[in-house]
Structure formats: C-alpha cells, structure tokens
Design a protein around this nucleic acid. Sequence first.
DNA 1: CATCAAATAAACATAT
DNA 2: GATATGTTTATTTGAT
Length: 659
Amino acid sequence: MMQESGTEATNGTANQNSAAPSVEGHREVRSKSATLSSDITVSDLVNFQQQQALQVARQILLQQQQQSSAHKSPKNNDKQPAPQVPFSVAMMTPQVITPQQMQQILQHQVLSPQQLQLLLQQQQSLMLQQQQLQEFYKKQQEQLHLQLIQQQHGNKQQSKEVSVQQLAFQQQLLQVQQQQHLLSLQRQGLLSIQPNQTLPLHSLTQGMIPAELQQLWKEVTNSHVKEENSAHNNSHRGLDLSSPCPVPPKNHNQHGSTNGQYISHSLKREGSTLDDHSPHSHPLYGHGVCKWPGCEAVFEDFQSFLKHLNNEHALDDRSTAQCRVQMQVVQQLELQLAKDKERLQAMMTHLHVKSTEPKPAPQPLNLVSNITLSKTAPEASPPLSLPQTPTTPTAPLTPLSQTHSVITPTSLHSVGPMRRRYSDKYNMPISPDIVQNKEFYMNAEVRPPFTYASLIRQAILETPEKQLTLNEIYNWFTRMFAYFRRNAATWKNAVRHNLSLHKCFVRVENVKGAVWTVDELEFQKRRPQKISGSPALVKNIHTTLGYGPALSAAFQASMAENNIPLYTTASIGSPTLNSLASAIREEINGAMDHGNSNGSDSSLGRSPLPAMHHISVKEEPLDPEEHEGPLSLVTTANHSPDFDHNGDYEDDHGHEDML
DNA sequence: CATCAAATAAACATAT
DNA sequence: GATATGTTTATTTGAT
C-alpha cells in the first residue's frame, strides 16, 4: 500500500530506517560504509564512459583543429593520433585461434599469485596516476569546454590561440584518455588480464588508435564466429572510422548517455534495431533525455528533442569527434568482448571437449553438448545441449553477437517482470561470468537473472557475520544491481516475501532487532524434485568430475583475473570481491556437505553461484548415490538464467517500470 | 495438461 | 499515525 511507495522513496542507498536507530546501530555503520564506497564507485563508473567519451572527443577535436591549421589536412581525416600499437595487434590474438592454440592458452591460464599481484599493482598505480591526471585534467577541461563552445559558435580565430594551450595539454590528455580507456574496460570486466595477454594489456594502454582498433576488431570478428557474423559486419560498418558519421548513428545512443549502461545494449541494437525506429523513438532519446554522449538535455516531447538534436548535435567538428570517440569505445568493448568469448570457448574446449570438434568458436554451447556426450549419457545429453544460448557466461557482455541467441529469445521480454528465469538454466554461469556480470549489473539496469532467494542468500553470505537486517539486504540489492534502484516497492516486497517464505532464511532475534541468516542446508534442499531425475545431467557429471579441479582452478584464476582488477580499479570495497569469493566457497562447502542430496539440486538453476560450487563439488566426488555430483558442467551451464535480458533491454525503461 | 517454483500483488499483523 | 518489518494468501507465468 502506501507504505510501499514511501519505501520507494527512501530506498536509495541511504538508510531508510530512521525509526529504528538502535536496531540498525552497529550494522548500520557497516552497511553504510560499504554502501558509501560502492555508491561512489558506481556513480563513478556510470559517468566514466561518458566522461571518457567527452574527453577523448575533445582531444580529437583539438587535434583536428591543430592539424588543419598546421597541415591543412583534409577536414575529417581519420588519422588518429599516435600511430603506435603494433604490439597489441599482434598480441591480442583475437579470435583466430585454433582449438589447439586455445588449449595452450588455457593451460597457461592460471596466473600465479605473483603474477596476479603484479598485475594488481600495475593497476593500482595506474589508478593513482589516473586520478592525478584527472584532477589536472578537470581544470583544463573546463577551460577547453568553454573554448570549444566559443569556437563552435563562430570564433574560429580563437581556436588558434586556444590550440597553443591545448597543445600543451595534449600529451597529458592523451595519457589520461588512454588510461581511462583501459580502466574503464577493466572496470567493466571487459578487459581481463590474461597471462598470455599481459603484454597486450600494456600495449593497450599505450595507445589504441581507432584505426588500429578498427582493424583489430575486424580481424577479430572475421575470424571469430565467422558464420554468425553477418550482423557484426554491419555493425562494423556503422562504426567505420572512415566515415565521419555525421549523423549520430544509433549505436551511440544509450551507451553514452546512460553511461554505465552497457554497450552491449547498444551494440545489440545496432544489429537489430538499426532500422526499427518507431516514430517517436530514437536511439538518442530516452526518458525524455537526450542521450547524446555528454548531453543530458531534457525534453518534453520528441519534437523538441529532434530539434535539439539537429541544432546541438549537428554535423560539426565536435559531433564528429564525439562520434569517433564513441566508435572507439564501442570498438574497444567489442574487441574485448570477442576476446572474452574466445576465452570462454577455450575454457570450455579445454575442459570438456578436449579433442573434439571443430566448431569451437561458433557456438560455445556446442561444447556443452559435446561434453555431455560422451560417456554415459548419450541420449540424455541432448537435453543439455540445447540451447541456443551459448554465450551465456559472457552473456551480459555479449549481446552484441546476436549470434548468440541469448539475446534473442527471452531477451525481448525479459525486461519486464522477470518471472521465469530459468529456462536459461541452460546457460552456464560459470564463476567468471558471474563476476564479470557483477560489474555489469552494477551499472546496467538489467534485471539480474537470479532469483530473489539466491540474491538474498548472496547478500547475507557476503557479510562476515553471515547475517543481515532487512534493511541491509535492501541496501545490498541497490548497491549491487542497478536494476534494483528502481521499483523499490516491488522488489522490496518480494524480498520480504522471500525471506518469510523460504525456510532457508532464518530470522534471528537480536538484542537490537532481528537479522536474517541463511540455512544453507535448507537452501540446498529446495526443490530437489525438479531436475533431480534428469539423467542427462547426471551423466555429465561423471564426465565432468574428472575435470573438477581444473575447473575450479580456472574459476579461481578467472576470479582473480576479472574481479580483482575490477574491484581494485573501481576502488570498490574489496569486501565485495572477497565476500563473493567466500560466499562461493561456502556454497561449495555446503554442497559438499549435502553431497548429493542436493546434487540434483536444480536449484542452481537460479543462482549463479551454485554453479560454482557444483564445480567444486566435482573435485570431491561425493556422490554416493547414483548421481554423482550435483551438477556437471553441463548442468552448470544450464543454469545460468537468462542473461539475455541484457540484450533486449531496450533502452531503458520501457517496460521495466513495472511500477 | 498437471505441477512446480518463482515473481508479483496485496492484505494484514506487529513493532518502533 | 506512519513506517518498517514480517507473514500469508492469491494470482500469474514459465518450465518441466
């Protein structure tokens, strides 16, 4: 009722509970600090891309101006600064990898602690530098901004004076920009550090030139998933640097403005949405706001927006530059995506399909089927194989490859109420993904594919005490998922409902009030009936068992790779990461304890984490009964719920406001 | 088609 | 009395 609406208002990150001071007491403090740091991070992240784009745009613009004044080079020459990146090209080794190569790569995949440490340090120092530069840059930025505006309105002459100054900063700007690129990528989990890719990383920082990027991208895409690619190509085209892209292409839309919003969305759109613009919808217009990168002008109606678009974002140097920047951003992300996909592929290949098949790249899922295969459950396997949702793991990140059906099916409607998540169980929520996705969900308003129960559990397990007050749980939701920063009334009610409904959540009275804890046993017990039987799964398990260790190792490695950097960079409270890890561990333990009972567990389906423990489970074959482990990779794979949403998430709102 | 789990809504109770 | 917190019931929906 009313309360809900009231709640909603408060839901933010702040503590809503002013009424129960004592109760919140200590906990409050804890959650508060956590919230704080994460909030900062989040918002920071949210603005990151946009800032980056703007900055880069300015820089490019400046360069252009200089060039034109100095060399009178053609107007929109695409030459970008700093032509150095030889390395990256070679090192990146996009998707042109043969299965064998993949294996090799995989084998080297596990970073040693030292290596990780090193990488971490590198990142941190980068962060520092960046901050410093950023500050300096901010000041300059203001000036430049003014100047740019002036220039735009006519006083070209000024530009010369300005340019002198600008030149002075150019270098720094470049640095900042590059670092930002890197950092942002890392934050998003797109840029993961891989052992064999360490170097590339550096080279990346050193200077990715749009042109190069593009080329890289092309290579990547071409080789990668050749088949599915048709669409990709299209997108490339759109991004082609050679074209100044005067008219703000649709791809730019949300991404820039929504900032945090994943590019994936935009990318995806590219493919599918290029043409479907309904009369009053424009990729650069959403929520009554202009989504042009850096512009957040508000408009009452679509018409005024169009007007604005034509006036403010007309074909001029600035727009062109911004456009380019956007392209860069997109390209980098795409590239990274491709890499991650490849990595996934390699992992899967390595883990299961050792020898097999040729078609690794195309569809990861296939692997699954391959996996299944073998051994024991011939027929059974079919079920597993399924789906079309190959990509899962990266799913959120992957949308762009429409190839992956992931996006398709559910995605479309997923936006709204999430009601069924599992079909997706066919995805594979392997740990790494989760992690990566974490970043994703923190920034993109995409509904997490996990059930409330899973999320609540996760929230609770992430704390050292393994207990949280309702309010803290709320805070965790809002902190971790952009999606839950909306519709508070709805999801809060759901959270409460879940807490009461599931036996796995135990309310513990405290002096100060009450906290919620998780009864892991119960949690694991839930709905065994379901899949339990699934023969297919069972069999796979066997198969998988053998690889158990490997898997978890890989998992950890990826965790390290992906998360650490992310969080580190993001300066997020490391607690998150750690807790996540610990939570996972716990799950694992729990799973082990219960052995097979839950083995059947289907529950995994819903929660991502579960998948992980399963993995570990394998390490220790406890399966007394017929089925050995809880789930096999396959199973695991299945579970990941729909990542699709991301894909479809239309721009924003739309439906999601169920309120 | 039956059943189940989860999401969603909402009424209601209780505590602060 | 307003909220926050919990509990419970009902309905809807997607999956199996």
